[in-house]
Design a protein around this nucleic acid. Structure first.
Lengths: 123, 123
DNA sequence: AAAAATACATAGAATTATGATGTATTGTAT
DNA sequence: ATACAATACATCATAATTCTATGTATTTTT
């Protein structure tokens, strides 16, 4: 009885830092790529972050389901051989929210920089 | 029976974005200023963020207490007239943690930029 | 005299990622 | 061929942290 262990290697960051950013990350990736399935999202985030952000499946799948429930995502199931694959893509509402969340995050990061590194001036 | 209402005006950001950053903000400010009391921290964060981050007292005071409990902060009580004021300052352990947390946050923000705005290249 | 600002506090609720657990298929190296 | 790693989904209790809603009380400003 073998179950996947590699996904449990922690991302190098304190768990709380990711809070509030997971959905932005996902919405943004979907906006770029059109349609993606869960595992693909995991891989792309890993790749782009140089292995520093490793989404946990216990976080990612529930997050996808919640965003679907909230009307931000739609989903199409396909089979690759016998293996199921659920492709997610943004709804119109999801596209709106994506823009809003990304702007918000951008602004927040700028503000955070001002608060923590004020000596750097506005970047 | 008048109780302070202005502190409850929300920071403009989704509540979750601040998670994980509150303690970094506080530790960093204390490292810069030596000793500060809660309300002073609230004001300085408000000022530096142009009013965009308004720490809630229900968040700040428990956070200060927790950091004290964790050995990151020490505290000295003084009276200004009849009004109590609790000055907090970093312990040696707190100074270490401050460096670590700030580095971690810096790196996380960089990584987040790579994941969400990869077209910008490394900043 | 009233209102706003200063200064602290606590407790229950809400949010959300995590850890632990589970099933099952497919590709690869020995 | 057979173990192992990787692919692909899922659920649920727990932990961690901030928020909301309260509360007390003093000082300054209008």
């Amino acid at each position: 009885m073998m179950y996947c262990i590699f996904m449990y290697i922690c991302s190098m960051y304190s768990k709380e830092l990711l809070k509030g950013t997971l959905s932005v990350i996902v919405l943004n990736l979907l906006a770029e790529n059109g349609r993606m399935y869960g595992y693909e999202i995991f891989q792309q985030v890993k790749e782009r972050s140089d292995g520093k952000i490793l989404l946990k499946d216990g976080s990612l799948y529930p997050a996808l389901q919640k965003m679907k429930k909230d009307g931000l995502l739609s989903c199409e199931e396909t089979y690759i051989g016998k293996r199921i694959r659920k492709y997610y893509f943004l709804t119109p509402k999801g596209k709106e929210k994506k823009v809003f969340y990304v702007e918000e995050l951008k602004d927040f990061i700028e503000t955070l920089n001002k608060v923590i590194f004020p000596e750097l001036g506005t970047i």
